[in-house]
């Protein structure tokens, strides 16, 4: 599944560390950025690359928040539900996103563009309410700003 050139890059990156296992997250992120989510075949390839068993990778993949083990849209919208955002219009942001995209948490739009997920406090409380898309943060959200942000993402 992983193209040969990428595989070589990853192998070089792994070989450069004392403990191949240290690289498992980085490898997963690189592959996830490329393929969207960590499918079973990908997970098994990651395991082989870093010298772990598929179970050992799964132990980690299911522990951390930002490893997707199920198909997601091209852009994953993480809406911050931390207490500050919650106090400052989180609910209206979520409601707007739900109605605009026609999906609820854990769902993906029919065109495969967006998946909606909650996330804990993003650390942008000074710009609440906030959300994260593709590891980029957007704060001080309003319906207009959400329109503008989503409009740019294909």
């Amino acid at each position: 599944m992983i193209p040969d050139d990428l595989k070589e890059t990853l192998q070089r990156q792994i070989a450069a560390t004392d403990h191949p296992r240290e690289q498992v997250m980085d490898v997963v992120f690189i592959l996830q950025d490329r393929f969207g989510y960590l499918s079973d075949p990908l997970l098994e390839e990651v395991a082989a690359l870093v010298g772990m068993t598929p179970l050992e990778v799964e132990e980690i993949a299911t522990f951390y928040e930002f490893i997707y083990r199920k198909p997601v849209g091209r852009h994953v919208i993480h809406v911050c539900d931390g207490v500050v955002c919650w106090m400052l219009e989180y609910q209206s942001v979520l409601d707007y996103l739900r109605s605009k995209l026609g999906i609820d948490y854990g769902q993906t739009t029919d065109d495969g563009r967006f998946t909606l997920l909650p996330t804990c406090c993003l650390g942008y409380c000074d710009r609440a309410p906030a959300m994260m898309i593709d590891r980029k943060i957007y704060g001080r959200l309003t319906p207009e700003r959400i329109d503008e942000i989503l409009g740019k993402l294909r």
Partner: peptide
């Protein structure tokens, strides 16, 4: 042995195999 372990986190930890 490395084919059985713990997956998930918080109140959803699961003890089993990869498949």
């Amino acid at each position: 042995y490395r084919d059985f372990g713990v997956m998930g986190s918080a109140s959803r930890v699961y003890f089993g195999r990869y498949a």
